[in-house]
């Protein structure tokens, strides 16, 4: 196989079409719920963000696939603010983030096979966390500041645990006994 054809094939594999489809579908659904100035603008924002993210995935060979979040996050922000505050839009916001993580996992590269099939281990906790947040938002009456502060502290504690886990050094092992 010629090197140029090989590169095209790899670029095609890098795109992660399943992840792209999931992220785009969620954003389109999100855009259709947009209020003023209307769903058309939301659709345009969603299309531009999805196309830019796809270009980031395909065109540069050595760019990290997580950089798809760069165009997607502002688009979610806009769509989230333009949509009415309902349970459906909150679910879509969580699904949008999860679909982006699926897209990041769907990163077939020459040095690593796609992790899409085993992404469930990593995506389960964020999905459960989003579900708990949705249920809490649904059941807890509005105006409870203490619950909000508690949730914020919980998230901060989780982030701290992540940082501590990441910075832990290997424990010095005891020398093997000769007996």
């Amino acid at each position: 196989m010629s090197p140029s054809r090989d590169r095209v094939r790899l670029a095609w594999a890098r795109a992660g079409w399943w992840g792209f489809a999931a992220a785009t579908a969620v954003m389109v659904a999100f855009a259709l719920l947009s209020r003023a100035p209307g769903p058309e603008v939301g659709l345009v924002v969603a299309a531009v963000a999805a196309a830019t993210a796809l270009a980031i995935r395909i065109v540069p060979e050595r760019l990290d696939s997580a950089l798809v979040l760069l165009p997607l996050v502002p688009a979610w922000g806009y769509l989230g603010l333009a949509a009415p505050i309902t349970l459906l839009t909150e679910i879509l916001a969580a699904l949008a983030a999860l679909s982006a993580l699926v897209w990041v996992a769907d990163a077939s590269s020459p040095t690593r096979a796609s992790g899409l099939r085993r992404a469930g281990d990593v995506l389960a906790l964020p999905a459960v966390g989003a579900a708990i947040a949705l249920v809490a938002g649904l059941l807890i009456p509005p105006g409870e500041l203490r619950i909000g502060v508690a949730a914020l502290l919980l998230v901060a504690a989780l982030a701290l645990v992540a940082v501590v886990l990441a910075r832990l050094q290997p424990a010095r092992e005891a020398p093997a006994s000769s007996l």
Binding site: A94, L123, L125, P126, G129, A130, A166
Partner: peptide, 24 residues
């Protein structure tokens, strides 16, 4: 800033995913 909870629900999976990766 916008006093809108919808973007916050999008932030939750992004905050939890690295922790889940460390646990895996």
């Amino acid at each position: 800033a916008a006093r809108d909870p919808v973007p916050l629900f999008g932030a939750v999976p992004l905050l939890l995913a690295p922790i889940a990766a460390l646990l895996a």
